[in-house]
Amino acid sequence: MGKKAIVLKEQIVESIAEKIKNSQSCVVIDYKGLTVEEDTELRKKFREANVEYKVYKNTMVRRAAEKVGNMEKFDDVNLVGPNAFAFGVDDAIMPAKIAKDFAKTHPKLELKMAYIEGEFYDAQSLDKVANIPSREVLIAKLLGSFKAPVSNFVYMLDALSKKKAEEGQE
């Protein structure tokens, strides 16, 4: 292997390490068996959600994980076969959520593991994580719970003022 190839590989490893460090999550997906059209559809869904989806050689990811440190689960057991990596930049749960939803109609797609905000999740626990509502849904629910008592209070004040107005007219 020439010096150019070694330098290129080192740059790729460094790039992957930076992605892992700068992302809220990294989901490992076994995409074996997907057609080109299905993979293109999945890439589009990830792109629309600002999730970076890449296919890397497992050895490159292992080396990048070693550089990042404390990522022993990116090992020979979990990184076997063709894997793609989905990096969640804005939303830690979104890559798992998109992949899980896609797998419902494309059973060949398999979520293998994830590194989310410093914690590792195997396929089983990752399935539970993917069911967590998105940040926007949780905020909407929270705001809705704030709005209900305020709306009731305003309605009550309005009813009281109408009652007083009626009493004043009689």
Results as ranks from 00 to 15, higher is better:
G2C: 03
V7P: 00
I16L: 08
I16K: 01
E18P: 04
E18N: 11
E18T: 14
K21N: 14
S23A: 15
D30E: 11
E37Q: 13
E37Y: 08
E37W: 01
T40H: 10
F46I: 01
E48V: 03
A49G: 05
A49N: 12
V51L: 09
E52K: 01
V55Y: 09
Y56I: 05
K57G: 01
T59V: 05
T59R: 11
T59N: 14
R62L: 04
A64G: 02
V68W: 10
G69A: 00
G69P: 06
G69Y: 06
M71A: 12
M71K: 07
F74P: 04
D76Q: 15
D76P: 00
V77W: 06
N78Q: 06
N78G: 11
N83G: 00
A84S: 14
A84Q: 05
D91F: 01
A92H: 06
P95I: 07
A96K: 04
A99T: 02
K100S: 10
K104C: 13
T105S: 15
P107R: 03
K108F: 01
L109D: 06
K112W: 01
M113E: 08
A114S: 15
Y115P: 00
I116F: 04
I116H: 06
F120P: 14
D122W: 14
Q124A: 14
S125L: 08
S125T: 13
K128I: 06
N131Y: 04
N131E: 15
P133T: 03
S134K: 08
V137S: 04
L138I: 13
G144E: 09
F146L: 09
F146S: 01
K147T: 01
A148E: 10
L157E: 04
K162D: 11
A165W: 01
E166P: 14
E167D: 07
